[in-house]
């Protein structure tokens, strides 16, 4: 790790001010991804602005939903009674991620900011356009079993590794960020980006901006939710494919539904077409399967991840069946 300066701040204003002082400064929250990336030499900030003492960790009910502070720990959110009551999908997704130790450290904001686990990104001896723009994509034509089947570009086929973000995108969350020019709101689905020609940009946060909170609007989906994560071992592994499913079922029919996937794209992948098609239809396996097929319309294999073309729709069906109480 290179030497860097370290400053501890206690307010979001001082955090934003401290960030402006040094071009390569970064915010340090839980550190579970950032410190790892610094150890690997992928990221070398010259200043860390420790925001752990900034009071942004509360979870509170608002008139329209829940507001979760960006510095709330993953464990705190997953175990929070309001979250479990209103948004069990979020709790399930968080508990499927990482390990208890990491969840005790990692924050909601940091989880959104976590970078891909693509090995070519982590290993500076290998080409990666995300780490080193213009160096090429090692995963294309290489080891890409874990990689994207949706929205990839010829520059990058990496996937976003978060479970929490899959739930938040399904739940129509809205992010509030603050920067030198004040606060702004970003719908969750617009936060992360597809790689396109600039895979070095994971998301649409502007330099110097700090994530303040995430708001999740109330819905009628809490009775039928399931987060299904398929991985190479039973726990403590990144998703091959994950599906967050939440439904409101009235008289056997799907009144409302949300579907999102992880491990398949550069961003948490919302399945809006499949949702729209399912609305109003009976909650049957046959319909789930049709919706899953619809969700796969633009899926594309990179070779090593061919199996995801089968696994992804199967996982959608299983998640929906489980959410509907049919398993």
């Amino acid at each position: 790790m290179n030497q860097f300066s370290y400053v501890r701040v206690t307010s979001k204003e001082s955090a934003i001010a401290a960030m402006a002082k040094e071009k390569t400064a970064m915010f340090l929250a839980g550190g579970t991804n950032l410190v790892d990336l610094m150890k690997s030499g992928v990221t070398s900030p010259e200043r860390l602005v420790d925001i752990n003492n900034v009071p942004l960790a509360t979870i509170e009910e608002t008139k329209t939903g829940l507001r979760i502070g960006a510095l709330a720990k993953n464990t705190a959110v997953a175990e929070n009674a309001l979250v479990i009551r209103h948004f069990p999908l979020l709790s399930q997704a968080l508990k499927a991620g990482a390990s208890p130790q990491l969840r005790n450290m990692a924050t909601v904001g940091g989880n959104m900011m976590q970078r891909t686990r693509c090995h070519y990104f982590y290993d500076s001896a290998l080409p990666c356009n995300k780490r080193n723009p213009g160096s090429g994509c090692g995963a294309i034509g290489g080891f890409n079993r874990m990689h994207a089947i949706f929205g990839a570009s010829d520059k990058c086929i990496a996937v976003h590794p978060s479970d929490m973000c899959v739930a938040l995108t399904a739940l129509d969350a809205v992010i509030t960020v603050a920067g030198p020019k004040g606060e702004r709101k970003i719908p969750f689905g617009d936060f992360h980006r597809l790689p396109g020609d600039t895979p070095e940009q994971d998301n649409n946060l502007q330099r110097g901006e700090l994530i303040i909170a995430v708001d999740i609007p109330f819905n009628q989906l809490s009775a039928h939710t399931h987060y299904l994560k398929v991985r190479d071992r039973a726990s403590y592994a990144f998703a091959l494919v994950s599906v967050g499913a939440a439904m409101q079922i009235k008289g056997g029919n799907i009144a409302d539904v949300r579907l999102a996937m992880g491990g398949v794209a550069h961003k948490p992948w919302r399945l809006k077409e499949a949702e729209a098609w399912l609305k109003g239809k009976p909650a049957t396996e046959e319909n789930f399967r049709k919706a899953a097929g619809m969700a796969m319309t633009n899926a594309k294999s990179q070779g090593g991840n061919e199996f995801k073309l089968t696994l992804a729709p199967n996982t959608i069906v299983e998640a929906l069946k489980t959410a509907a109480g049919q398993v």
């Binding site: 030497q3 860097f4 300066s5 370290y6 400053v7 501890r8 701040v9 206690t10 307010s11 001082s14 001010a17 401290a18 002082k21 010259e46 200043r47």
Partner: peptide, 14 residues
């Protein structure tokens, strides 16, 4: 800017 920040700048210069 709060005191902590100033303090940090003094002690944590790269």
């Amino acid at each position: 800017m709060d005191d902590q920040l100033k303090n940090g700048e003094h002690t944590g210069t790269s």
